[in-house]
Design a protein around this nucleic acid. Structure first.
Lengths: 204, 204, 204, 204
DNA sequence: TATGAATGAGGCTTCATTCAT
DNA sequence: TATGAATGAAGCCTCATTCAT
């Protein structure tokens, strides 16, 4: 609240942003604390007032950035005029499409996240928002599930399969155009996702 | 031929094996050249006679180990009594199953490969065997394709999707039982793979 | 001001002195940073807080030591009782004699400086004092020139010739008594210097 | 004589030439034996059949190259049409001029020699030719002295002073145009040399 | 005579982290 | 809370030289 409080927030933010810039451009292991504090304009010791160590700041960044990805996707879905009329399957595809879009436009972010992502970190990111405006994607997902007409078997496994498929596919096709560009891949990818969803839909 | 040549082979092997042990137990970045040479019983300088640097030995290991994974899978398929009667789809599932089996039993290998794998490296590994007994999986895959009854659309993309799905799924479920154990995951995973394959099968 | 500042000064001094000792006894290329920090009693990393690298500390030493040489010579000249009555030519000879004297008594210094000296470094040393008590010899030289009765043509070239002659002559004769001892050489050397000066004196 | 003998000569030559190329371009300490043998096309061990160590090849190069400098200067003087009519003083100036000319046109050589030259090495170079076609400059100098009309006092000291003056002056003015270009310097330099010579000429 | 694999000490430098101020 | 000087282990790599072939 007080000036002091605000100032602390500013410092932490500054460190996070600077670290993110370096991690995405130079890579984690080639970025030094010196780099970060120098550009953030604080003393070396100060870094350790805000973060336990180098890994701490990285993990906080990953969860925060992943969360923002979903936050943005959820927002886009919500604000879409036809949101009401979309099926569960369509909504998931929309979310996937939004995330792929964001990653395409921010390849540094994609690289940073993929290199460090695991389902575990991921789940944490989506379940335990770090900032107040981080989204709790799991709540959203649960709400969506309720709308599914026939119910979904093993919804977490289903999400898991989809996330892994997307994450692997994006990394390779966006960053290296391998085995093809993301645009060429999309139809195939989305079809595969739809098939996985349908497979999990409970027979009526 | 001579003693020298044999000795060189032994040294290189020794370095590769030792490095692999360290990479899989301590991790790549926490393994030092000193660690490797000390345990391999050679001088530090000797390391640089065989490998350009630390990254070089890692890449050679990844490609070699990946190749061996497929080699073993191909071998098992070939030696299977019912090999002749299997459909294209079934054969792919068998290969996947073999690889997942190997990775389940060698989690250190799984960890090492996943952390460092990309489709690019992967393709290289399968296309350009480093050792003479490394398998050229691409040839095998091409032969299998020919047997597919109706032909396959975009066979490389299909393989890509399957590989990414398996690789992501294995990492999380084998190493961390997240979101469930690999055995629980298998039915869902294999079903998803079958769906992807069918989607790529050309309509008759 | 504070303790810290004083401590830093002490550390830097300690490093400079220790480095000088090693450079003059073991030689530059055979002196390692390890040698220096070990004897100076600081950590290896500390060295790099004060100097960019090994070359940096060498250059700072050369300029500083050269400057001190001239500082001492100028001081002796100034304090000499007959200073006022000396001609321009005599003053230069006095300075040369003082420097040669110092170098004779400190052969390690002579060896260190000669091996690394060039007119460029030299001029820098005399023009840009590094410590506050380093002397600006160029100012002194300019003042001396004004006293020359008829004026001097190309005073910088003249100084250059004298310096090169002295520096080459000292190195060989002081350190190796080749082709003769410095004492035997002096009359010839000073005569040569006087001739060079006269040659540059403008005809009245 | 035999083929073997010739082959050995070729190898040694090849090593010397290659080393010279590297020393003059990369510098002595940054040139490795590996560099030399690789380019010379011989094995590493072979190097040590011809030279004791790295310093050995450097010293042999310095003496050889210095000697060639004088050889060429002596040759030019000899072939000059007016050679007969030149005074002792003029002949020395001619030699100096030839050497300065050669060094101007081969700055790499100048740099190499200056960095490593001392009167001791120099004298050795001129007294003990290494190749059969290296010149014994001392003999020539002695013959020239005999022609001097009145005789020369301390001829070695005189030569020493001249050599040191030229060598220092060349280094700075040819390589760095400091304090002026060699062409601007020449009149002053030659005049200084003439004065030194005259000073050593015995009064009749 | 010639090779080149092997050596291993040692080089320089970086960096995460601590702690006195 | 903030600083930044100090640490010192550890990192990677080079290279002159040797020696078995």
């Amino acid at each position: 609240m007080g000036k002091v409080e605000v100032n602390k927030q500013r410092k932490e933010s500054s460190l996070l942003n600077t670290a993110f810039d370096f991690f995405t451009t130079k890579g984690f292991s080639k970025t030094s604390i010196s780099d970060i504090v120098a550009k953030a304009g604080v003393a070396k010791g100060t870094f350790y007032l805000y973060f336990k160590d180098k890994y701490d700041i990285r993990n906080r960044l990953i969860t925060h950035k992943s969360s923002q990805l979903f936050r943005q996707a959820a927002l886009e879905l919500e604000q879409s005029p036809d949101a009401g009329s979309l099926s569960f399957e369509d909504k998931l595809i929309r979310i996937a499409d939004s995330i792929i879009g964001q990653l395409s436009e921010n390849q540094a972010l994609l690289n940073f996240i993929s290199k460090n992502l695991s389902w575990g970190v991921f789940k944490t990111a989506l379940t335990n928002p770090v900032t107040e405006d981080d989204v709790n994607f799991y709540d959203l997902y649960r709400r969506m599930l309720e709308e599914a007409p026939h119910g979904i078997d093993d919804p977490e496994i289903m999400l898991f399969l989809i996330v892994e498929l997307i994450s692997g596919a994006c990394y390779s096709s966006i960053l290296y155009q391998e085995p093809c560009s993301i645009d060429e891949l999309k139809p195939r990818l989305y079809k595969a996702i739809r098939l996985i969803i349908r497979e999990h839909e409970r027979e009526s």
